[in-house]
C-alpha cells in the first residue's frame, strides 16, 4: 500500500510538472503581450519595455521558465524598477500582473470560497443523486421511478445558469428567504455560511445529482441482476439485507471513482456557479485572468485545478483497493 502511494505520488508530481510546463509555454509564448494590454492606448515603446521588465518578461523564455519553477520550490526575488527587489517566498506563484498581489494570497483567499461551494454541493448531489438512483432501481417501473427518471432528464439537460437564476428569482428576490449568495467563513459564522451558500450548493448539485441518479440507477439495476444477488436471496436473506449489504455495496464502487474525480475537478474552480453568483473563488479569478492576460493567475489556477484532479485520482485508486478486494495495489 505504502509503496503504491509513493509510486502514484511520484507519477502525480510528474503529471503536474508536465501540466505546468505546457501551460507555461502556451501562455508565455503567446504572441499577445500583457505589457501592451496594461499600458493602454497612449503608450510608448519605453514604457512597454519598463513594464515588461517589471513583469520579468524581458528575460529569455527558458530563463523565465526556470525562474518560475524554481520559485515554486525555493522562492525567488523580483527586480522592481526604482525599488528594492521583492522576495517571494516558496511556494512562489509570482505576482498578479494587475494588482501586484502575490498570487499565493489570491489563491489563499479564493480557494476557501470554492471549497465551501464544492463541499456543500457534493454532500447534496451525492445524497440526493445516489439515493434517488438506488431507490428508483429498487422500485423499477413505478411512479417513483418514472418521476426520478424525469427529474434526472430535466436536471441533466437544464443549463446550470438557468436553474441558478430560477433559484435567485424565487428565494432571494421573490420570497426574500435568503440573502444574495456571498461568502462567509465557515468558522466565523456556520449558520451564515449555510444561508449564504445554500443556493450555489443547489445550483451546482442539481446537474450532478441528475447524473448521479441516472448512474446509480443503472449500476443498481445491473447489480440486482447479478448471480450473487440471487444466491443471497436463495440462502434466505431478507430483501433489505440483500439490497443494502449485497447490492448497494457492489453498485456504489464505480460511483466512488466518478465522485472522486468530479469533486477533485470541481475543487479547482466551480467556474459557472461562481460566476453566476459572483462568488470570488478559483473559477471566478480564472475567468477574469484570461482576458486580462494575467499569466501568473492563469498559471496558478491551472496548477491548483490540476493538483486536485491528480490528487483525487490517487485517492480514488487507494479507496478502490479498500472497497474491492479483487483490486491489488501493485
Amino acid at each position: 500500500m505504502l509503496r503504491f502511494i509513493l509510486k502514484r505520488s511520484l507519477i502525480a508530481i510528474l503529471t503536474l510538472w508536465a501540466i505546468s510546463s505546457v501551460t507555461f509555454f502556451v501562455f508565455f509564448a503567446l504572441p499577445a503581450n500583457p505589457a501592451e494590454t496594461m499600458c493602454g492606448k497612449n503608450c510608448d515603446v519605453r514604457t512597454i519595455a519598463a513594464i515588461q521588465k517589471n513583469l520579468g518578461m524581458d528575460k529569455p523564455l527558458p530563463k523565465q521558465y526556470l525562474d518560475y519553477h524554481a520559485g515554486l520550490f525555493v522562492g525567488r526575488d523580483f527586480e522592481r524598477q526604482g525599488r528594492e527587489a521583492q522576495h517571494c517566498p516558496a511556494p512562489c506563484l509570482a505576482y498578479s500582473f494587475r494588482t501586484n498581489e502575490p498570487v499565493t494570497s489570491i489563491i489563499g483567499r479564493a480557494w476557501p470560497v470554492t471549497a465551501s461551494i464544492v463541499v456543500g454541493g457534493a454532500v447534496i448531489w451525492l445524497t440526493v443523486g445516489i439515493s434517488l438512483g438506488m431507490f428508483s432501481a429498487l422500485r423499477r417501473g413505478t411512479v417513483f421511478d418514472k418521476t426520478a427518471i424525469a427529474f434526472s432528464l430535466v436536471g441533466a439537460s437544464m443549463p446550470i445558469y438557468v436553474f441558478a437564476i430560477l433559484l435567485l428569482a424565487t428565494f432571494v428576490f421573490g420570497l426574500h428567504l435568503l440573502p444574495y449568495p456571498h461568502f462567509v467563513g465557515l468558522l466565523e459564522d456556520p449558520v451564515g455560511w449555510v444561508k449564504a451558500l445554500i443556493l450555489p450548493w443547489f445550483a451546482l448539485a442539481f446537474i450532478f445529482a441528475a447524473q448521479y441518479a441516472r448512474l446509480s440507477r443503472s449500476q443498481m439495476l445491473e447489480t440486482l441482476s447479478e448471480d450473487y444477488i440471487r444466491t443471497a436471496r436463495a440462502i434466505g436473506l431478507s430483501k433489505r439485507t440483500v439490497h443494502l449489504k449485497h447490492a448497494f455495496r457492489a453498485a456504489i464502487t464505480p460511483i466512488v471513482t466518478i465522485a472522486g474525480i468530479d469533486i477533485g475537478g470541481a475543487l479547482g474552480g466551480a467556474v459557472i456557479t461562481e460566476t453566476i453568483f459572483g462568488l470570488q473563488g478559483m473559477g471566478w479569478y480564472a475567468v477574469r485572468a484570461i482576458p486580462n492576460l494575467n499569466f501568473p493567475v492563469i498559471m496558478a489556477t491551472v496548477l491548483v485545478a490540476a493538483f486536485f484532479l491528480v490528487a483525487a485520482n490517487v485517492i480514488v485508486d487507494c479507496l478502490y483497493a479498500v472497497i474491492d478486494p479483487r483490486v491489488k495495489l501493485n
Binding site: 447479478e226 448471480d227 450473487y228 440471487r230 444466491t231 443471497a232 449485497h246 455495496r249 457492489a250 472497497i323 474491492d324 478486494p325 479483487r326
Partner: peptide, 12 residues
C-alpha cells in the same frame, strides 16, 4: 447451488 460459482458468490 448454481452454475457459475464465481458469479454466484459475492466478490466483496
Amino acid at each position: 447451488i448454481f452454475q457459475d460459482p464465481l458469479s454466484s458468490l459475492h466478490p466483496y
